[in-house]
Amino acid sequence: MVKHRPMGFKFALLTILCAVATPAFAAEPTIEELLNATDDVNRGESSQSTIEMQVKTKRYERSMTMKAWSRGEEDSLIRILSPAKDAGTTTLKVGDDMWNYIPKIDRTMKIPPGMMSGSWMGSHFSNDDLVKSNRLADEFDYKKESFVDGVYTIVCTAKADAAVVWGKVIVKVRADKIPVEVAYYDEDGELARKMTFSDVKDFDGRKVPATMLLVPADRPDEFTRITTTELDFDVQFDARTFSLQALKE
C-alpha cells in the first residue's frame, strides 16, 4: 500500500500562502466547508510570499528565509534566501513530482519515490508533506465534536480503504474558517504531531495565520516554525515560472 500523508506541509503552507476569502459573519459553515477551507483554501489562486522557517532539533537549530511562489495546489517553487550557505537552493514541485536545485554543484536532482518520506530541508516536514494533495473530507469520516468560543472541533477518522498514514486527525477551526490547530494521530491512536496556527494577520486584504508551529509528539523539545512575513495574492506567472529552467534562476 502506498502511504502518504494528507494535509501536511502543503496544507499548512497553502493555508499561509493563500488565505480564505471568507466574510467574517457568513452563514454557519458546514463541517465539510470547514475541512475544505482548512486544506483546500487556495484552489485556482496564485500567491507569492516570503517566509521564515525555524527548525529546532536535538542536534541542530537553524533558521532560513525563503521566497515561495505557488499556483493552485499543483505547482510551487521555494527558494532559500539565507543563510548564505544554502542560498539559492530551490525546490520545485509540479504535481506529484519534486526536484531540488543545489547551486553549489549547479545540479538539479529529482527526488526519487523512495526518498519522499525524507525530511525537507532539515525540517520536521517530509517531502511528501509538500507534494501530496489528499483532502480530509475525501479520505476521512468526519464529525463535529464541539463548538466552543467560536472554534469548531472536528474529529476525522480515516476511512477503511483510505491509503493514509494517519488514523485520526482532529481539526480545530474558527467559524471564519481560519484553522487553529490540527493534531495527527497514527493508526494506533497515538498522537504523532501537532500543528498550531497563530498570529492572524491581514495580508493583501485577507486574514491569514502568519505563524505555524509543528511539534512532533515524541520529541516535544523539537519544532519547526514557519512565519509568513510577506504575502501577495493573484500574482501573474508566466509559463516557465514552474519549470526546471526556473529552478536555476
Binding site: 527548525v55 532539533t57 542536534r59 541542530y60 537553524r62 543563510p83 550557505k85 544554502d86 537552493t89 531540488n100 543545489i102 553549489k104 554543484i105 545540479r107 530541508m121 532539515g122
Partner: peptide, 8 residues
C-alpha cells in the same frame, strides 16, 4: 548534520 543540504 547541521540540517543544511550537503552536496558534492
Amino acid at each position: 548534520s547541521d540540517g543544511s543540504i550537503g552536496a558534492g
